[in-house]
Protein backbone atom coordinates (compact mmCIF):
# COMPACT_ATOMS: atom_id res chain seq x y z
CA UNK A 1 0.00 0.00 0.00
CA UNK A 2 1.37 3.37 -0.98
CA UNK A 3 2.23 5.70 1.87
CA UNK A 4 3.80 8.56 -0.01
CA UNK A 5 3.19 9.62 -3.58
CA UNK A 6 5.10 12.48 -5.09
CA UNK A 7 4.33 13.65 -8.60
CA UNK A 8 5.85 16.52 -10.53
CA UNK A 9 7.26 18.13 -7.40
CA UNK A 10 8.89 21.44 -8.21
CA UNK A 11 10.58 23.68 -5.67
CA UNK A 12 12.47 26.92 -5.70
CA UNK A 13 14.39 29.08 -3.26
CA UNK A 14 13.19 32.53 -4.28
CA UNK A 15 13.92 32.80 -8.00
CA UNK A 16 16.21 29.76 -8.04
CA UNK A 17 14.37 26.66 -9.22
CA UNK A 18 16.02 23.61 -7.67
CA UNK A 19 13.58 20.74 -8.24
CA UNK A 20 12.18 20.21 -11.72
CA UNK A 21 9.47 17.65 -11.27
CA UNK A 22 10.31 14.84 -8.88
CA UNK A 23 8.24 11.65 -9.09
CA UNK A 24 8.58 9.05 -6.40
CA UNK A 25 6.52 6.70 -4.30
CA UNK A 26 7.17 5.01 -1.00
CA UNK A 27 5.17 1.95 0.00
CA UNK A 28 4.21 1.37 3.60
CA UNK A 29 6.93 -0.53 5.42
CA UNK A 30 9.60 0.14 2.83
CA UNK A 31 13.08 1.56 3.20
CA UNK A 32 13.80 3.77 0.19
CA UNK A 33 17.13 5.43 -0.56
CA UNK A 34 17.58 8.69 -2.40
CA UNK A 35 21.01 8.92 -4.03
CA UNK A 36 22.57 11.82 -5.85
CA UNK A 37 25.59 14.05 -6.21
CA UNK A 38 26.15 17.10 -4.04
CA UNK A 39 23.68 19.81 -4.91
CA UNK A 40 21.40 17.44 -6.81
CA UNK A 41 18.43 18.45 -4.67
CA UNK A 42 18.12 15.62 -2.15
CA UNK A 43 17.86 17.85 0.90
CA UNK A 44 15.52 20.14 -0.96
CA UNK A 45 13.26 17.20 -1.77
CA UNK A 46 12.94 16.26 1.89
CA UNK A 47 12.41 19.89 2.88
CA UNK A 48 9.73 20.27 0.26
CA UNK A 49 7.95 17.16 1.54
CA UNK A 50 7.80 18.78 4.98
CA UNK A 51 6.52 22.04 3.50
CA UNK A 52 9.25 24.00 5.25
CA UNK A 53 8.89 27.76 4.78
CA UNK A 54 11.30 29.60 2.52
CA UNK A 55 10.74 27.12 -0.27
CA UNK A 56 7.95 27.58 -2.76
CA UNK A 57 6.67 24.27 -4.05
CA UNK A 58 4.19 22.96 -6.54
CA UNK A 59 3.17 19.49 -7.64
CA UNK A 60 1.43 16.63 -5.93
CA UNK A 61 2.44 15.23 -2.54
CA UNK A 62 0.01 12.72 -1.07
CA UNK A 63 0.68 11.12 2.27
CA UNK A 64 -1.50 8.38 3.62
CA UNK A 65 -4.16 9.17 1.06
CA UNK A 66 -4.30 12.94 1.65
CA UNK A 67 -2.44 15.84 0.15
CA UNK A 68 0.30 17.60 2.10
CA UNK A 69 0.56 20.54 -0.26
CA UNK A 70 -0.03 23.83 1.51
CA UNK A 71 -0.01 22.27 4.99
CA UNK A 72 2.00 23.90 7.74
CA UNK A 73 5.06 21.95 8.78
CA UNK A 74 3.55 21.23 12.20
CA UNK A 75 0.56 19.66 10.43
CA UNK A 76 2.88 17.50 8.34
CA UNK A 77 4.53 16.29 11.53
CA UNK A 78 1.15 15.70 13.12
CA UNK A 79 0.16 13.56 10.15
CA UNK A 80 3.08 11.26 10.87
CA UNK A 81 6.26 12.42 9.18
CA UNK A 82 9.48 12.96 11.13
CA UNK A 83 12.54 14.54 9.60
CA UNK A 84 16.14 14.30 10.78
CA UNK A 85 17.65 17.29 9.00
CA UNK A 86 21.06 17.32 7.43
CA UNK A 87 23.58 18.51 10.01
CA UNK A 88 21.42 17.13 12.84
CA UNK A 89 19.55 20.30 13.86
CA UNK A 90 19.36 19.67 17.59
CA UNK A 91 18.42 22.45 20.02
CA UNK A 92 21.88 23.34 21.31
CA UNK A 93 20.77 25.39 24.33
CA UNK A 94 18.32 22.74 25.52
CA UNK A 95 19.35 19.72 27.53
CA UNK A 96 19.35 16.26 25.96
CA UNK A 97 16.21 15.40 27.88
CA UNK A 98 14.47 18.59 26.76
CA UNK A 99 15.43 17.85 23.17
CA UNK A 100 13.72 14.48 23.49
CA UNK A 101 10.69 16.05 25.15
CA UNK A 102 10.48 18.50 22.28
CA UNK A 103 10.49 15.55 19.89
CA UNK A 104 7.28 14.38 21.54
CA UNK A 105 5.80 17.88 21.48
CA UNK A 106 2.63 16.84 19.71
CA UNK A 107 1.98 13.77 21.86
CA UNK A 108 -0.36 13.95 24.83
CA UNK A 109 0.34 10.51 26.31
CA UNK A 110 2.96 11.74 28.80
CA UNK A 111 3.48 8.36 30.42
CA UNK A 112 4.20 6.54 27.19
CA UNK A 113 6.48 9.34 26.13
CA UNK A 114 8.48 8.74 29.30
CA UNK A 115 8.71 5.06 28.47
CA UNK A 116 9.77 5.81 24.91
CA UNK A 117 12.46 8.20 26.13
CA UNK A 118 13.78 5.55 28.50
CA UNK A 119 13.83 3.06 25.64
CA UNK A 120 15.91 5.43 23.56
CA UNK A 121 18.24 5.91 26.51
CA UNK A 122 18.64 2.14 26.50
CA UNK A 123 19.40 2.22 22.81
CA UNK A 124 21.90 5.06 23.19
CA UNK A 125 23.35 4.85 26.71
CA UNK A 126 25.68 7.73 25.89
CA UNK A 127 22.63 9.98 25.77
CA UNK A 128 21.39 8.66 29.11
CA UNK A 129 24.68 9.67 30.72
CA UNK A 130 24.32 13.16 29.35
CA UNK A 131 20.62 13.72 29.78
CA UNK A 132 20.99 16.98 31.70
CA UNK A 133 23.83 18.28 29.60
CA UNK A 134 23.01 20.86 26.92
CA UNK A 135 22.84 19.34 23.47
CA UNK A 136 25.33 21.83 22.07
CA UNK A 137 28.07 20.20 24.11
CA UNK A 138 27.53 16.73 22.65
CA UNK A 139 29.91 15.25 20.10
CA UNK A 140 28.80 15.01 16.51
CA UNK A 141 27.91 11.34 16.81
CA UNK A 142 25.98 11.90 20.02
CA UNK A 143 24.09 14.73 18.38
CA UNK A 144 23.15 12.48 15.49
CA UNK A 145 21.88 9.87 17.93
CA UNK A 146 19.91 12.57 19.69
CA UNK A 147 18.45 13.82 16.41
CA UNK A 148 17.34 10.32 15.44
CA UNK A 149 15.87 9.59 18.85
CA UNK A 150 14.11 12.95 18.90
CA UNK A 151 12.56 12.36 15.48
CA UNK A 152 11.36 8.88 16.47
CA UNK A 153 9.72 10.18 19.63
CA UNK A 154 6.89 11.57 17.54
CA UNK A 155 6.16 7.93 16.59
CA UNK A 156 6.22 8.70 12.88
CA UNK A 157 4.82 6.53 10.13
CA UNK A 158 7.46 7.89 7.79
CA UNK A 159 10.96 8.79 8.88
CA UNK A 160 12.98 11.10 6.64
CA UNK A 161 16.71 10.84 7.21
CA UNK A 162 19.08 13.31 5.58
CA UNK A 163 22.62 11.91 5.47
CA UNK A 164 22.58 10.35 8.93
CA UNK A 165 26.14 9.09 8.45
CA UNK A 166 27.60 12.54 7.85
CA UNK A 167 30.84 12.94 9.74
CA UNK A 168 30.48 9.81 11.84
CA UNK A 169 32.94 7.00 12.58
CA UNK A 170 32.27 3.76 10.65
CA UNK A 171 31.28 1.89 13.82
CA UNK A 172 28.74 4.52 14.78
CA UNK A 173 27.32 4.49 11.27
CA UNK A 174 26.98 0.73 11.44
CA UNK A 175 25.16 1.02 14.75
CA UNK A 176 22.80 3.69 13.44
CA UNK A 177 21.88 1.70 10.37
CA UNK A 178 21.21 -1.38 12.47
CA UNK A 179 18.81 0.74 14.49
CA UNK A 180 17.11 2.00 11.33
CA UNK A 181 16.68 -1.56 10.10
CA UNK A 182 15.31 -2.54 13.50
CA UNK A 183 12.88 0.40 13.54
CA UNK A 184 11.67 -0.65 10.16
CA UNK A 185 11.35 -4.30 11.08
CA UNK A 186 9.79 -4.18 14.52
CA UNK A 187 7.90 -0.85 14.59
CA UNK A 188 7.02 -0.96 10.92
CA UNK A 189 8.38 2.57 10.42
CA UNK A 190 8.69 3.47 6.77
CA UNK A 191 11.99 5.17 5.97
CA UNK A 192 13.12 7.49 3.20
CA UNK A 193 16.83 8.02 3.56
CA UNK A 194 19.25 10.30 1.73
CA UNK A 195 22.72 8.89 1.96
CA UNK A 196 26.16 9.32 0.44
CA UNK A 197 27.26 5.98 1.82
CA UNK A 198 25.33 4.21 -0.92
CA UNK A 199 26.59 0.68 -0.23
CA UNK A 200 25.40 0.79 3.32
CA UNK A 201 22.12 2.47 2.45
CA UNK A 202 21.37 0.03 -0.34
CA UNK A 203 22.07 -2.85 2.01
CA UNK A 204 19.07 -1.98 4.20
CA UNK A 205 16.90 -0.52 1.43
CA UNK A 206 14.20 -2.13 -0.64
CA UNK A 207 14.27 0.37 -3.46
CA UNK A 208 16.33 3.35 -4.55
CA UNK A 209 15.98 6.54 -6.56
CA UNK A 210 18.79 8.50 -8.15
CA UNK A 211 18.33 12.23 -8.44
CA UNK A 212 20.30 14.48 -10.73
CA UNK A 213 19.89 18.25 -11.11
CA UNK A 214 16.49 18.19 -9.50
CA UNK A 215 15.08 15.28 -11.45
CA UNK A 216 14.77 11.56 -10.85
CA UNK A 217 16.95 9.85 -13.43
CA UNK A 218 16.95 6.26 -12.27
CA UNK A 219 14.92 4.02 -10.03
CA UNK A 220 14.72 0.37 -9.17
CA UNK A 221 15.04 -2.30 -6.49
CA UNK A 222 18.04 -1.68 -4.24
CA UNK A 223 19.76 -4.89 -5.20
CA UNK A 224 19.49 -4.09 -8.90
CA UNK A 225 20.88 -0.60 -8.50
CA UNK A 226 23.65 -1.97 -6.39
CA UNK A 227 24.81 -3.88 -9.45
CA UNK A 228 24.02 -1.21 -12.01
CA UNK A 229 27.26 -0.14 -13.64
CA UNK A 230 26.30 3.52 -13.95
CA UNK A 231 25.29 3.75 -10.33
CA UNK A 232 28.37 1.91 -9.22
CA UNK A 233 30.60 4.28 -11.09
CA UNK A 234 28.80 7.45 -10.07
CA UNK A 235 27.82 6.79 -6.49
CA UNK A 236 29.54 3.73 -5.16
CA UNK A 237 33.02 4.49 -6.34
CA UNK A 238 33.90 1.03 -7.61
Amino acid sequence: MTLLTVEGLEASYGPVRVLHGIDLTVERGEVVVLLGANGAGKTTTLRALCQLPGLSTSGRVDFDGRSLVGCRTEEVVRRGIAHVPQGRGTFPELSVEENLDAGAYLRRDRREVRQDIERWYDTFPRLADRRHQSAGTLSGGEQQMLAVARACLSRPQLLLLDEPSLGLAPLVIQHLFEIFAELNRSDGTTILVVEQNATLALSIATRAYVIESGQIVLTGPAAELHHDDGVRRAYLGF
Binding site: V77, F91, P92, A102, Y105
Partner: peptide, 14 residues
Protein backbone atom coordinates in the same frame (compact mmCIF):
# COMPACT_ATOMS: atom_id res chain seq x y z
CA UNK B 1 12.77 27.77 23.92
CA UNK B 2 13.02 25.25 21.09
CA UNK B 3 12.05 27.93 18.57
CA UNK B 4 14.63 30.26 20.09
CA UNK B 5 17.30 27.56 19.88
CA UNK B 6 16.61 26.32 16.35
CA UNK B 7 13.51 27.56 14.54
CA UNK B 8 13.66 25.07 11.69
CA UNK B 9 14.11 22.03 13.89
CA UNK B 10 11.29 23.34 16.04
CA UNK B 11 9.03 23.21 13.00
CA UNK B 12 10.26 19.72 12.22
CA UNK B 13 9.16 18.37 15.60
CA UNK B 14 5.75 19.94 15.09
Amino acid sequence: RAVAANPESALLVG
